[in-house]
Amino acid sequence: MASENLTASSYIQHHLQNLTFGQHPDGSWGIAHGAEEAAAMGFWAIHLDTMLFSIGLGILFLWLFRKAALKVSTDTPSGMQNFVEMMVEFVDTSVKETFHGKNKVIAPLALTIFVWVFLMNLMDLVPVDFLPHIASMLGVPYFRVVPTTDLNATLGMSLSVFILIVYYSIKVKGISGFVGELTLQPFGKWMIPFNFLLEGVGLIAKPVSLALRLFGNLYAGELIFILIAILPWGIQWALSVPWAIFHILVIVLQAFIFMMLTIVYLSMAHEDH
């Protein structure tokens, strides 16, 4: 809550504004104040809050899991090792059920996606004003704590997955196989432009849908939390508690869907038609 006289729409807009660092049109570097300034910075600007939380949560995930992995033993597991083993086993089963080839990347990739996305989504359950308020007291004007409500974050991941899809398609089928897959079906070689249009759209739709699904769900969830936060404080709990409980399901489900679809897309990339 940066200013004293707050209207509902400015409150919402403020909450949906990332802490953007970049070059102002006049040439000076700094934090963007407001959506117009952030938009004016163009591509060469960075969301510091998104980066901070996503990298922080990623490091938290790896630190926890690495700590458990170092102490891992074949005796009766306990505590953290139990949890880590459960996660690893769950991801491993999911991968093995869907993907039948040999690939050392997919399972750790799926684990990273699942846990990382889950942790980023989990930030949604922190009360919407809590961290931004602390940040504003420290002099930071904008602070969005849920990285997955930033399209950059979800698109960054889904584009990485897209690169992997293309990489493995070419690695497994060869360039000619991959190009053939894009152009020679479903209608044979006399319809190459049409085939390419269809298959190209299908290919591009994978990362885009992956990113937008996660982004859309979390953005909507966040927005509803913000809307609830506008209500008089006495009745907020009556709406925010059920929504938060429902949201627990959503955040796990979205993390799982992102992971599962990544596995499915990559296993499709490994299959020869």
Binding site: M41, G58, L62, V105, D150, N152, G156
Partner: peptide, 24 residues
């Protein structure tokens, strides 16, 4: 806005996956 954050995210994602693959 789509901006540099996208690439930053992709890089950190790649690093996390690499670390997970190697050490976890």
């Amino acid at each position: 806005n789509i901006n540099l954050t996208l690439i930053g995210q992709a890089i950190s994602f790649a690093v996390f996956v690499w670390f997970c693959m190697k050490y976890v």
